[in-house]
Structure formats: structure tokens, C-alpha cells
Write a protein that binds this DNA or RNA. Structure first.
Length: 400
DNA sequence: TCTGGGGTCCTAGGACCC
DNA sequence: TCTGGGGTCCTAGGACCC
């Protein structure tokens, strides 16, 4: 059987555990920038209409008593890693799915799964003073759906022969893997539940959704073939993006932010020992339309000035002159690199040493202790408000 | 001054090669 | 007087997740 553990309102609960003044109150955890959204909110806030994804202002409007708290990633990461460590003492078959979710493959011949679930819940509660919900089922899909049934602080188990009927109890859009677009398509066809999906038949589903059709057909029977994957998968890309406090109008402003983003991306790559060969730049305009372009170059790098130069050249190709709401830079086609800049094409071959020293200073004295003048001179407060790390740990391998 | 940020995976078409 | 077939790599964009 598969056990899925999902922390309840994780970031908000951690904040409330750390600060007694926040307990029992409607709180929302938000980013530190001006244009930010609710990342998570306490159950008290949910009861008053606050939802994940709302803008800060919307949250204040629906709930004037809301207490806004900015993210403190280090504590979330710490709690998450400690919980993961504990789960691995139960079985090595643990898949860390996100910072606040994990799957465990439990052999029922050896363990009573219900007592394991309650043991996990009580460990989390007594060590961190937060709650989690646990779902159990014959596969990851059913276990995952079961976690939500009695949230928060819930437990729910689905026996294999109940799995199909259990799936029928959800709106399609609530099912893991069926998002807004897919459920919208189904709705337009008058299909609302997995029972309707089964009626439609596999052939028809495949005509509509290709290979995805078979998957959905399986899911509608409560079946799911992906097993718990405990391997640490290599990272595929490292990226950062930033919604600007005010829309940008000039190339010079954009250049400053692109340098900052390039530095964030490349220093993170260096810190984790990766170099990349493709760069993706995204521009979001005032109407929230995205334009992006990637480029593959003939060498691997994690040098800030390379990333920046390529980012600028891509930017110049795609920027139409519209106001800029967001800029993003992402490095892909990563390979592990011990010798960071081995393939550099500069005249000056000493850059590797320069970045080593910069990274060392910034590790010792804090991010952006040493940076480019362009980044530091602008009063757009660089490092302190750098993006909250959504997945700082686990299979994603990236450490903050 | 509504609507963040970090990812993965998939598809479809074009270029290029043998 | 006709333009196959298999493969890889690259790119843009979309869907989905937490």
C-alpha cells in the first residue's frame, strides 16, 4: 500500500508554531515583493475566504483582519528535511514529492499501516507542533486523493476494491493531474466524474488526448502505475524570474534586472556544481502575455557574464518595446561540472578563479556581499527579497 | 496600482544527417 | 517525371503541480 503525507497549510502552520502571537489568527504567508500573492494561509484565514493565489490586496479586501507574514524559507526547509529524515527511518521507499508532501511504499506484511500513519502524525505534532494529513491507498493517485478527505489533521484509507468508487466521488478538476484545461474540456462535453469518463471509453479518450487518454482512463478506474520513486533525480534546469514592482519601460532598466537574474541563476548553478548549455529568457508584458526564447550555445557555462550576455542578446531579439511586467532567466541542459568554466571562450582564462572568490565571499558574508555595480547601485533592494524558494530540498536537489 | 515563483514533462514542427 | 524512412537535436508553447 502507498501512504501519502501532506502537511496542513505548511508554511502558515510553521509560522504559527514559531510565533505564538499568530496562533488562532487568520494569517497569510506572502512573498516579500510588492506584487505578491498568498502562498499559503492558515485555516482560520480560509474560513474567512482567503485562498492560495490571491493577491495581497485581494486577501486584505476579503479579510481585513488578515495578518500578513513573509516567507522564511530556512525554517520550512529545516522542518521539511527533518520530517523526511524521520520518514526514512520507517522505510527507505520514500519519495519526497515536494517540500510538504511525501509518498511511502509500505509492505503490509511487515507493518500495520494505520498505526504507522498515526505514529507519523504524532511525531510531526510533538516535534514541530504542526499537523499533517495522511491518505492511504493501493497506489499513489488514490493515496494522494485520500489525504484531502479529512484535511486538516486527517487520516483516510481506501482499500484496493474501493478505489474506483472512491475516485467517482471527486469532481474531475479536483483530481491530481487533471487541471483547468482538461476539466474544462470535459465539462464542455458534459463529463463531470470519473464514472462519466469510463463511459466514454478508452478509444474515444485517446482520440481526444493522445497518450494522455489512456492515463486518464486508467485513473478513472482507480489505477495508477507510477511507483514510489526514491531516487534523487538530477536537476534539469535552474531558473529565476521576477515580477517587477513597476512595469519596466526601457532597455536599460531591463538590463539591470537581467544582470541580477543572471547572477542569481549562475551563482546557484555554480554552488550546486552545474553548468548549462541552453538559456531561456521570458518577458511578460502588462497584459500578462509571455514571450520566450531559448538558445542553445556550443559550450557549457555557469559564468555570470556569459549568462548575462546571452540573456541580453535573446532579450533584444524578443522585446517588442512593450512595458515589461516580469523577466525570467533559466539555464537548462545541465551537466555536473567540477571544473566550472572549462569550456570558456574568453580571452581571459582567469574567470573561474574570479567566480570562486566571489562565491566564497558571498557564502561567508551573505548573498551579494560582492556583486556587479549595476546590480548593487540600483535601490531595487536585491538580495533580501530574492524569491521564496518553493522547493528547496528533496528530489529537486537544489539547496538555498 | 488585482492575479508569484520554481519546476517537469509533452507535443509538434523544422533542420539536418545517413 | 519524382520526391522514402529513420534518427537526433533544437525550439516554442502549453499543461500541470506545489
Amino acid at each position: 500500500m502507498i501512504l501519502c503525507m501532506d502537511m496542513d497549510a505548511f508554511f502558515a502552520s510553521v509560522e504559527q508554531a514559531a510565533n505564538p502571537n499568530l496562533r488562532g489568527k487568520p494569517i497569510a504567508v506572502i512573498g516579500s515583493r510588492e506584487r505578491t500573492v498568498v502562498v499559503t494561509c492558515s485555516y482560520e484565514a480560509r474560513a474567512l475566504g482567503v485562498k492560495t493565489g490571491m493577491s495581497k490586496y485581494e486577501a486584505m479586501k476579503v479579510c481585513p483582519s488578515i495578518v500578513l507574514v513573509t516567507t522564511t524559507n530556512r525554517i520550512y526547509t529545516h522542518v521539511s528535511t527533518e520530517i523526511t529524515k524521520f520518514l526514512k527511518t520507517i522505510t527507505p521507499k520514500v519519495e519526497v514529492y515536494s517540500i510538504d508532501e511525501a509518498f511511502l511504499d509500505i509492505d503490509e506484511d511487515e507493518h500495520d499501516i494505520t498505526s504507522i500513519a498515526y505514529m507519523i502524525k504524532s511525531h510531526v505534532k510533538s516535534n514541530f507542533n504542526i499537523t499533517c494529513s495522511i491518505g492511504v491507498g493501493p497506489n499513489k493517485l488514490v493515496a494522494k486523493m485520500a489525504t484531502g478527505v479529512h484535511k486538516p489533521d486527517g487520516f483516510y484509507m481506501v482499500e484496493p476494491d474501493e478505489a474506483m468508487e472512491f475516485m467517482d466521488s471527486f469532481e474531475l478538476g479536483k483530481i491530481w493531474g487533471i487541471g483547468r484545461k482538461l476539466s474544462g474540456k470535459f465539462r464542455n462535453m458534459g463529463i463531470f466524474t470519473t464514472a462519466d469518463v469510463r463511459q466514454l471509453g478508452e478509444e474515444r479518450l485517446c482520440e481526444m488526448f493522445g497518450i494522455n487518454g489512456s492515463r486518464i482512463f486508467q485513473m478513472a478506474h482507480g489505477l495508477y502505475s507510477d511507483s514510489v520513486d526514491q531516487t534523487e533525480k538530477p536537476v534539469k534546469s535552474i531558473g529565476h524570474s521576477m515580477t517587477m514592482p513597476h512595469n519596466l519601460k526601457t532597455r536599460e532598466e531591463a538590463a539591470g534586472y537581467l544582470l541580477q537574474l543572471s547572477e542569481m541563476v549562475s551563482s546557484r548553478a555554480r554552488r550546486n556544481g552545474y553548468s548549462g548549455k541552453t538559456l531561456h529568457v521570458v518577458i511578460r508584458d502588462a497584459e500578462r502575455q509571455d514571450v520566450g526564447k531559448r538558445r542553445t550555445f556550443g559550450f557549457f557555462t555557469s559564468a555570470t557574464h556569459h549568462i548575462y550576455e546571452i540573456a541580453m542578446s535573446i532579450f533584444d531579439e524578443i522585446w517588442s518595446g512593450e512595458d515589461i511586467r516580469l523577466l525570467g532567466v533559466s539555464l537548462g541542459s545541465l551537466v555536473p561540472s567540477c571544473v566550472t568554466l572549462s569550456n570558456m571562450m574568453d580571452d581571459f582564462q582567469g574567470w573561474a578563479d574570479v567566480y570562486d572568490v566571489i562565491d566564497e565571499i558571498n557564502t561567508k558574508y551573505g548573498k551579494e556581499s560582492v556583486s556587479f555595480g549595476t546590480v548593487l547601485q540600483c535601490k531595487r533592494r536585491g538580495a533580501k527579497t530574492i524569491s521564496p524558494a518553493w522547493r528547496p530540498d528533496g528530489t529537486r536537489n537544489i539547496k538555498f
